[in-house]
Design a protein around this nucleic acid. Structure first.
Lengths: 201, 201
DNA sequence: TGTACATCAGTGAACGCGCGTTCACTGATGTAC
DNA sequence: TGTACATCAGTGAACGCGCGTTCACTGATGTAC
């Protein structure tokens, strides 16, 4: 039984990463479902036929994007929430959202678009990943100064606000970004700890 | 100057409506951005070239879908919210959501997908339509038994919950629908009137 | 009333193009002994 | 060490197909007079 050398594996992995990144960037402008195998291969500087050395088709590539790019992003968010000060503010979460959008806009676009997109298999995969974030939020609810009565419900509401925040942040012009940040901070903060100072008249 | 007779206009309008409906149904499965002119024409039983008698291209058709289908749906929702009992419950809104999803699933899918989809011009058009619903929610906030301190903020939160509810309802299996309805009702109700009975431990 | 003409939704042929996929091949790099 | 062989990522040619778009045309239905 023969196996590829570590060096060869590395080279293949590098091409694979290039394909995923190229698909992510193209999906941000044209949409993942209208993305072509040849288009992605072209952007990654390989022959169309070489695509098959890495993925059976575009849907396999899409699932890889979910597992290897969206997954880590959500784990990072969940870890930040879990590890954070139980008095973690909405402002901190708003900053995290805007930071992710600034750092990897294509990835965030892919995530929020495909979560509700036409590709059922991607919707399902993303839903599972997002459940992890929901759990982190739920755990965070219970260790607060003003704990919520229904943590699951509050966590789902907070997640909806987070995702909506991602979507808004992707399109908001730079000059309105500060305003968006403030609103997100208040909305999320209020969901985390109802009746906190942000809601007093 | 000659003009088409009312009868001819009606016939053309009928074909146009068929095209829009066909596009809506196809978009629900393949995604609007990957939809082809020929594909839509085929589904509407007209020759590919006849498509041009109604729309210059698919993006014009997409904008027509927003104006003529999504618009009325949102106006209906906004009217329901504005005209409703100021004590309107989250349960009523949850029922409205589930009803719309059951009645016109393709339209709801189109709306939630393209709001965050790759087509910037559709995102923009949908954002404007959704602002109308946001205003209706905001007005509703002020005439309640427990008015919110920041109606705009609360309205935006409620809108995020509504849209997330649409997205979830589209994919939830029938046996979990009742559970979703209950959760939506509580989450939205709580955003409408914080501290109401649904949140007491 | 009849005749000439205008409008216009729908059509079928044709075009060039990019697509996904197959196939046999190359060449670098490994193992076997 | 040398020689024979295996692996496998990448390739270029070729295929059939559906695409968007153009064009000149048809035929039903209107108006002008």
């Amino acid at each position: 039984v023969l196996r590829a050398s570590p060096h060869k594996r590395e080279e293949k992995e590098r091409v694979r990463v290039t394909l995923l990144q190229a698909a992510l960037e193209l999906a941000a402008t044209h949409g993942f479902s209208s993305l072509g195998l040849r288009e992605v291969a072209r952007a990654a500087n390989i022959a169309p036929t070489s695509f098959y050395r890495h993925f059976a088709d575009m849907s396999e590539l899409g699932l890889a994007l979910v597992d290897e790019h969206v997954g880590p992003l959500l784990v990072e968010l969940a870890t930040g929430i879990r590890a954070g000060d139980p008095r973690q503010t909405g402002a901190e979460l708003a900053d995290t959202i805007l930071g992710a959008v600034e750092k990897q806009p294509e990835l965030v676009r892919f995530m929020v678009a495909e979560r509700v997109g036409a590709f059922a298999i991607l919707r399902e995969a993303l839903r599972k990943k997002l459940d992890g974030l929901s759990n982190a939020l739920q755990a965070s609810m219970q260790n607060r100064s003003r704990p919520r009565a229904r943590p699951l419900l509050a966590a789902e509401s907070a997640l909806a606000l987070l995702l909506d925040g991602f979507a808004r942040a992707l399109d908001v012009p730079e000059k309105e970004r500060a305003q968006l940040r403030e609103r997100l901070a208040e909305a999320i903060g209020y969901t985390l700890e109802p009746g906190s100072e942000s809601e007093r008249p």
